[in-house]
């Protein structure tokens, strides 16, 4: 399933595409709202409500861009209204404009969540050793340490890192627009 098929599936409310919708967006949207509101319980409610809208209403999307934009924007507005309610309940004056003026910051935060999702997905499809090496690197280990942990040479760690980078670059090549989710579990589990 590539990006086009995915979007088409979402527009047609196809279960397989909707499953992928949840795989890709659920945790990242929840994490996002949690950061906006500092509340994980409400986060799940907001996100579920928003995703069900995709499922149950006639809303359609032209591409991934439009879908990501719609989802993040929707949960952002929902979070803002929750925040407003909270503020009015507490009759506070200062916090009332907290998020409205900060759409820019909220967008940057959304971007960050999407980066995490995409990076996590691509990590999961890298060959085992490349994945481990990137993981160790993310944990702050140096090439030297990684080489000794995996009992390989430093050069081979460097080579594997470069390969991983090549792989990632190719997959996110804007012209190809690979859609990653299909490859996390290569076998077709939906038949």
């Amino acid at each position: 399933m590539n990006a086009l098929e995915f979007i088409e599936g979402v527009n047609k409310k196809n279960d397989r595409a909707l499953k992928k919708l949840y795989d890709h967006y659920y945790a990242s949207l929840c994490g996002y709202v949690e950061k906006l509101l500092n509340d994980s319980g409400i986060a799940e409610d907001i996100v579920q409500e928003c995703l069900i809208k995709v499922w149950n209403t006639g809303v359609t999307f032209s591409d991934m861009k439009a879908l990501s934009a719609w989802l993040y924007k929707s949960v952002y507005h929902a979070a803002v209204s929750v925040l407003r309610e909270r503020v009015s309940l507490e009759r506070l004056q200062d916090g009332s404009r907290l998020l409205e003026d900060e759409e820019e910051a909220a967008q940057a935060l959304a971007l960050r969540e999407e980066v995490i999702t995409y990076f996590y997905e691509i990590l999961n499809q890298l060959p085992g050793q490349q994945r481990d090496i990137l993981l160790f690197t993310l944990q702050g280990h140096k090439v030297q340490d990684i080489a000794s942990m995996l009992s390989v040479s430093e050069n081979s760690v460097k080579t594997q890192k470069k390969r991983a980078y090549q792989y990632i670059r190719e997959h996110f090549d804007a012209n190809k627009l690979h859609f990653l989710l299909t490859m996390i579990f290569p076998k077709n589990q939906f038949s």
């Binding site: 439009a66 719609w70 971007l111």
Partner: peptide, 20 residues
């Protein structure tokens, strides 16, 4: 909001670049 997906893809590549 429309830029998120494109920027996310590009940033992932930058991130891999940095790690490598």
């Amino acid at each position: 909001w429309k830029d998120i997906d494109d920027l996310a893809r590009r940033t992932v590549v930058n991130m891999a670049n940095r790690l490598s």
